[in-house]
Simulated scan of single mutants.
Amino acid sequence: MGNSLEAIKYANGKLEILNQLLLPEQFIYEDCSDSVKGWNAIQQMKVRGAPAIAITAALCLACEVNHIKQQMSLQSLKQFIFDKLDYLCTSRPTAVNLFKMAEQMKFLINKQTDMKYSELANSEQLAQFFIDQAIGLLAKDIADNKAIGNFGADCFSHLNSVKILTHCNTGSLATAGYGTALGVIRSLFAQNKLAHAYATETRPYNQGARLTAFELVYEKIPATLITDSMAAFLMIEKGVDAIIVGADRVVANGDTANKIGTYQLAIAAHYHNIPFYVAAPSTSIDCTKLTGKEILIEQRPAHELTHLHGKQISAPGISVWNPSFDITPAKLITGIITEFGVIHKTDQEFKISNFLNAKI
């Protein structure tokens, strides 16, 4: 498996993704070198995590573009890319990174193909431009994650030893590498400041039990797995210093969409006076939406709740409500850790737009 886990492998016009549905029993990479395979991998959650979804979408299309670039004119290839980006955005609705990637790609291509300022003379040049942009997402995501890890670790500079509780999977398997919330845990561990990490199993998809636990064991980070329903009692019994989670979307007021179960952790943290941090790259921030009420919450299939490894574990005939995410109100969040630094509240409010405008 090498020195570090990789959810996404791209080389020589070929994309492979680690099928996370099979972890931890099997460690298998699957070809994902066209937009249909990419859409299916994202929708079926073979690859998941907001940053990884966006990167997979860009790279699977880059592979496809590379194979057909000589068959189209410049304008027809441009339209093909735009149509495929729209198609890939229908795979999952909640994580904003995917939509931001598509919008940014369209903007850059429009800019490069504008008749007044055109720097692209043919379809091959457009294809290479798109491929280069997609590849660049990998390196940028890793750099951003390491910055998030360091800024997050700085939040605990006043402590010599830290116990962290995290939810879902926000590590190398959810990103291009290193991770967001799990990246903060990695940074604390590297600084010899992590006393212990606690991971929830994260029902019903068990990303914590299957993926986060896998990464923590792989990295030899001291850690313990708990069920989701143990979290509040853990805060009392084990003296947790902070909860750090990721985000699929952070809106203008600081409300945050993250894996289902995050909201109740924030409530428990607030009751026990424990800091609650959200770690997310700026690509997960969506200031076009003012509050969490505007976020579309993905509904997952009933069988993900009623079945385990294909075997029914619930009473037959029971109805199911299975939202993939919930919304944590900004008032329950201590700070938002980004690659540019930590966004803290000013007068009990997050001024996210002001922070980003000052940094970007």
Results as ranks from 00 to 15, higher is better:
residue 307 H to S: 05
residue 327 I to G: 08
residue 190 A to P: 00
residue 199 A to L: 12
residue 295 I to Q: 07
residue 332 L to H: 14
residue 289 K to H: 13
residue 238 K to N: 12
residue 293 K to S: 14
residue 275 P to G: 08
residue 95 A to H: 02
residue 227 T to W: 05
residue 47 V to H: 00
residue 227 T to H: 07
residue 118 S to P: 08
residue 281 P to D: 08
residue 231 A to Q: 01
residue 215 E to F: 02
residue 357 N to Q: 15
residue 79 Q to R: 09
residue 54 A to M: 02
residue 210 R to N: 12
residue 93 P to T: 06
residue 327 I to P: 00
residue 301 P to A: 12
residue 289 K to S: 11
residue 26 Q to K: 15
residue 344 H to P: 05
residue 82 F to W: 07
residue 136 G to I: 08
residue 66 N to C: 06
residue 192 N to G: 04
residue 101 M to D: 01
residue 212 T to A: 11
residue 158 H to D: 15
residue 278 V to E: 12
residue 310 G to Y: 07
residue 168 C to N: 14
residue 242 A to D: 06
residue 240 V to Q: 11
residue 303 H to C: 13
residue 160 N to F: 04
residue 266 A to I: 04
residue 63 C to Y: 02
residue 171 G to E: 00
residue 278 V to K: 00
residue 305 L to S: 15
residue 18 L to I: 07
residue 145 N to W: 00
residue 172 S to T: 06
residue 188 L to G: 08
residue 136 G to R: 04
residue 170 T to M: 01
residue 152 G to W: 04
residue 227 T to N: 08
residue 247 A to F: 10
residue 116 K to H: 10
residue 353 S to R: 15
residue 275 P to N: 09
residue 32 C to T: 11
residue 19 N to F: 00
residue 174 A to T: 04
residue 6 E to C: 11
residue 234 L to V: 07
residue 296 L to C: 10
residue 179 G to A: 05
residue 69 K to T: 03
residue 132 D to M: 00
residue 273 N to A: 13
residue 324 S to C: 15
residue 307 H to P: 01
residue 217 V to F: 08
residue 345 K to F: 12
residue 185 I to T: 05
residue 306 T to G: 07
residue 220 K to C: 10
residue 20 Q to C: 03
residue 224 T to K: 13
residue 296 L to K: 12
residue 294 E to W: 14
residue 222 P to M: 01
residue 106 K to L: 01
residue 163 K to W: 06
residue 322 N to W: 11
residue 280 A to C: 14
residue 217 V to Y: 04
residue 352 I to L: 13
residue 93 P to L: 04
residue 360 I to R: 12
residue 47 V to F: 01
residue 168 C to R: 13
residue 291 T to S: 15
residue 145 N to F: 03
residue 358 A to N: 14
residue 200 T to L: 07
residue 115 M to G: 03
residue 93 P to R: 10
residue 196 H to R: 13
residue 38 G to L: 00
residue 155 C to L: 15
residue 227 T to Y: 06
residue 267 I to F: 09
residue 228 D to M: 01
residue 245 V to W: 15
residue 324 S to G: 15
residue 335 G to P: 03
residue 157 S to R: 10
residue 344 H to K: 08
residue 65 V to T: 05
residue 113 T to A: 00
residue 167 H to R: 10
residue 230 M to Q: 14
residue 232 A to L: 09
residue 296 L to S: 11
residue 257 A to D: 01
residue 64 E to P: 03
residue 207 Q to R: 01
residue 2 G to F: 05
residue 259 K to T: 02
residue 12 N to I: 03
residue 59 L to V: 01
residue 101 M to S: 07
residue 149 G to F: 04
residue 274 I to Q: 10
